[in-house]
Simulated scan of single mutants.
Amino acid sequence: MRHFTIFASRNDTGDVPGLIAEIFADGYKIDGGPGEYVVQQRKWFNKNKMVIRVASEDTDPDYFANNVPGMMGFYDRIPFEDEQLKRLVLTQISVINTMLAIETEKDYDEAYLTLFRGLLRGVDGIGFFPDGTLADHDGRIIVHPDGRSGNAEFRPRACTRKIRGEERVSAEGEQRKLATIAYLREMNIPWNEGLPQLPPLADLRFKSGEEIARRAVALLLVIQYACDVLQDEDLEQSRQFVTGMLDKYGVTAALTENEVELLQQEEPEHQDAVNISWQYEAYWALIWALGLVERLDFPSQACDCDFAIQAVSSCGSLEQFMERTAVRRPEEILDEADRIYRLHWACVNSRVKGESAPAGMNESIVMERRRALFWLIGCGDESWDHVRMDT
């Protein structure tokens, strides 16, 4: 192989030139910089010149805007044998903002790989091999291209800049955060004081009633197809029914990339169907926002699937469905988003400690509810398939 790429989440890249100089101090000549370094062995023979290109969101924002979603999609499609590991990998990719792309003139050997691992440790990143293998900051395998787990005990790493972004502290955000913490204290659920505020109302782009309705109907229909996949139903018949209903309600354009892919797969991936079937819980949050569900109960029990289906199936058109809705106030939706954000942290904190989620929470329900609520408030303006789940 001639390529090895290191991705990381870092506040800045100011120390990278010094790190490269340190790693290649013995027997190498380094030219160039900043941004591109040519590293050449001082030996007369068996030279293997390499080029190290360094980029960050500051120096090359278009690269990260264009490639991180593709990388997310690539690993989302891999059938991980450990679904939790998949979530951790996707979380890590979502906060990447630094890249060291290494290209060697000839295939590199173990000696070169040892040097690459030194860079990997130095920037505290993940290593990407051309075949899709991922390595952790110590060079241990996280996941193989076929989804098999490696021997790394992997945990995502995110810099404060990516976690907090350009955090805007506001009295409104602080009041909302403190109200959620009071709720958590009453429920005896741990919280993290350092978890930032959500943006104030004025900084968010809430979805319209029609956007929510279209997303909800499209999602429900694809969920039905995903359930048929899992139950080994006649998929051609199911596909025709679902696509027909999407046309009937006029919501085909509201499908996400992942949903379109599931419908188009000749032999749908089992895990893809599982992932979408769990989104019943996200759909439930959508119809709550539309006023069709009275309240969002504590995320410990699955939603009422029969009621969820009836909410749409009892309507002959999207217009009739929308006539029954009354979109909740943005303040109410943002309050729920703040609450689920901090409940998610409590779930992750317990999982990292090897403990059960507090108060009987189901983390999968929490995550799907967060997906919907963060999409509803337009947090980060992220697409449905790529709502960040960092805590």
Rank of each mutant, 00 (worst) to 15 (best):
F7Q: 09
N11D: 13
N11M: 09
T13S: 13
D15M: 13
P17T: 00
I20F: 02
A21Q: 13
F24W: 07
Y28I: 00
E36V: 10
Q41K: 12
F45P: 07
K47P: 05
N48E: 03
D58E: 15
A65L: 09
V68I: 15
P79E: 00
D82V: 05
K86I: 08
Q92T: 04
I93P: 05
V95W: 03
N97K: 02
T104W: 11
E105I: 05
F116L: 01
R121L: 14
V123D: 01
G132Y: 01
H137G: 11
I142Q: 01
H144Q: 11
P145K: 04
D146V: 08
R155G: 10
P156I: 06
T160V: 15
E174A: 14
Q175D: 13
R176Q: 06
L178P: 06
T180K: 08
E186Q: 14
G194S: 14
G194E: 15
P199N: 09
P200H: 03
L201M: 10
S208W: 07
R214N: 06
A218D: 00
L220A: 10
V222H: 01
I223P: 08
I223C: 01
Y225N: 01
A226F: 05
D228E: 14
Q231P: 07
L235I: 03
V242H: 04
T243E: 15
D247A: 14
Q265E: 14
P268Q: 06
Q271Y: 02
A273V: 03
A285I: 03
L292N: 02
E294G: 08
P299E: 08
D304S: 04
D304V: 08
Q310M: 13
S317I: 01
E319I: 10
Q320N: 14
Q320F: 09
R329Y: 11
E332K: 11
R342V: 05
W345M: 05
E355D: 13
S356M: 14
P358S: 07
G360P: 10
E363A: 12
R371L: 04
R371N: 11
R371P: 06
L373W: 08
F374H: 06
I377R: 01
C379N: 15
